[in-house]
Structures are given as C-alpha cells and as structure tokens.
C-alpha cells in the first residue's frame, strides 16, 4: 500500500475518532450547563476543562481575554483559528477519505462527503450564535454519523491492511483522549483542594462516555474508582488498557512476522505503556505524582504515534527537489 494512502487512512480514523469524542464532550457540557444555570462559576470551570480536553487553552487565550460561553462554543465548533474545531476535524476526515477513497468502501466515502456538504450548508444557512437546541441537534447528528461510519467499517471492510491502519489510528486517538481527560480532571481536582478520596468522578465518567458501563458494575462514583476503571478495565472499550490491546492486535495483523524489527520497534513501547498504565494506583500516590504520571503516559502515547508514523513512512514525503 502507498504510504500516502496509508497516511490518509490513519488520519481519517484519528480525525473521525476525535470528532466523535469532541462532539460527545460538548454535548455533555451543554446539557450540564442547563442544570447548572445560576451557579456561574462551576460551569465556567467545566467549560475550561472542556476547552483543555478538546483544544488548546493557550491557543484560545491568544485570541480571547477570558472565557465566555458563546464565543467558546463558536471556537470549539466552527472557528478557523482552532485546528481541532469540529468543522475543521470533519473537513480533515473528508479530505483524508478522499485521498484514500480507493481503499475504503464507496459508501463510507459517500457518507463522509455527504455529511460534510450538509454541514457546510447548515452553517452558511443559519444565523449565529446557534440556539442551544439546534446545537444539540447538530452534535447529535455528528455522533450518529460517526456510529454509521463505525458500523460500515466494522461490517463491510475486508480484514486487510486498510482496515488495520484505520484501527491503529482509531485506538491510538482514543487512548490518548482518555489519558488526556483523566489528566485534565486530576489537574482540575488539584485546584479545588478536595482530598482525592472524597472527590467525585461523575463528570469524568460523563466526559469519557463511561457512565452506563461503570454503573452496571460499581455503585460509587468516587474519582479514584472511576480513574482506575478508565485506565484498567479489560472490557470497557474506551479504557486505555482496552485501546492498547486493540492496537497490539492491529499491529500483529499489519506485520505478519512478529520478530521483525518493525514489529518490535512498535510493540516494545506499546508494552511499556500498558505496563505503566496497569501499575498506576491512585491509592498509593499523591495527586501531584498522579498528574506527573498521566503526563508521562500522554508523552508515551504521542511517541508511539510518531514511531508508527515513521516506521510506515506515513509522513508526507518531501518534494523531490
């Protein structure tokens, strides 16, 4: 497979996963805001966390003096200055699908293309700021499309190189996101000065779309229990451990020879990351140590992505003169 096409598949999957995650997080926060109206501070705090998870607080601060809800929503959804705005990531999904369209099901390309076209229309036709209800509807639509995309990939793609490249992109993105959400929540907690044992993890569960799964198995939503669940659980498909196992599975299929240098160069750091994740125990460390540890895991994740991109020549080839 051409490196350029592989690059397209991998990034299509990453951006697709990022779009879905961000849409979910925004939706959670919008609904949260409805309940919290009145207590201004709390929801601004939450918005700040959301900004940190879905984009970059520093980047936002360079364009805005302080956080206000409407401009922030606009920033997270539509702003051209935000490289992770929903519209931007959706555009990236579509363009990467276009690059790799001879390796994906025709319906998948058509779906991504039609959705992007619909969205553009929607945005040009409507007045801003969007009313809350239509924002919610719009986010719902983003998520529904993502589900259809996942279904199409799972249900109709050959278990072949393109499929596994998509898998690597998807699970890497998801693992990174879960770690990031945990990290931001811990940082947030640190500022509140509440002891870890007393802290509540309900918002973290919501953000990671884990509430349903978690409550089936546990009664209490304390932050420690929730964080461990999100990092360690074997069966929950958004836990870091789960994601890393999926990446390993995909790598084993991309590289048939499991003693090859290429495989080992990826599998060793993957194993090290999994080991560090499993070793993480909030009951035995301070919050500062926990934050530091999460930061290290995030770097490991980023390094793993880089290694993957380099080994399979996914970077844009340099122009030939």
């Amino acid at each position: 497979m051409l490196s350029r096409v592989a690059d397209g598949l991998y990034w299509m999957a990453r951006y697709s996963e990022r779009t879905e995650n961000n849409a979910h997080i925004l939706q959670v926060q919008l609904l949260n805001m409805l309940e919290q109206s009145g207590k201004d501070n709390e929801y601004i705090d939450h918005w700040e966390a959301v900004l940190d998870i879905c984009a970059s607080k520093e980047e936002y601060a360079s364009y805005n003096d302080h956080i206000r809800v409407n401009p922030l929503i606009d920033y997270l959804l539509f702003s051209e200055t935000n490289s992770n705005a929903l519209l931007t990531t959706l555009y990236a999904v579509r363009e990467n699908a276009r690059i790799s369209r001879d390796s994906i099901p025709i319906e998948l390309w058509e779906l991504q293309n039609a959705f992007y076209l619909y969205l553009q229309q929607e945005i040009t036709d409507r007045e801003k700021p969007f009313p809350l209800m239509s924002l919610n509807y719009f986010l719902q639509n983003v998520r529904k499309t993502s589900m259809t995309v996942t279904g199409l990939i799972e249900g109709s793609m050959d278990r072949d190189l393109p499929f596994y490249l998509i898998q690597v992109g998807k699970w890497l993105e998801r693992a990174e996101k879960t770690i990031r959400i945990a990290l931001i929540t811990l940082e947030h907690q640190q500022q509140l000065n509440v002891s870890l044992q007393e802290a509540d993890g309900a918002f973290l569960l919501d953000l990671s779309r884990a509430t349903e799964s978690y409550l089936r198995k546990h009664r209490q939503t304390n932050l420690t229990g929730v964080t461990h669940y999100l990092l360690h659980d074997e069966h929950f498909p958004r836990s870091v451990a789960f994601c890393l196992k999926k990446i390993e599975e995909a790598l084993m299929n991309i590289e048939k020879d499991h003693l090859s240098i290429r495989f080992l160069e990826l599998n060793n750091p993957l194993k090290a990351l999994l080991f560090a994740i499993m070793k993480f125990d909030l009951l035995t460390i301070t919050i500062e140590e926990a934050i530091l540890s999460m930061e290290e895991r995030l770097f490991q994740c980023v390094d793993l992505s880089r290694a993957f991109e380099t080994i399979y020549h996914l970077y844009e080839p340099i122009e030939q003169h």
């Binding site: 350029r4 080839p317 030939q320």
Partner: peptide, 9 residues
C-alpha cells in the same frame, strides 16, 4: 494503484 508524483521515485 492511484499515485501522485511524490509517491514515485
């Protein structure tokens, strides 16, 4: 395969 110039050497 559909290739671009930069895919060839």
């Amino acid at each position: 395969q559909l290739v671009e110039g930069r895919d060839l050497v």
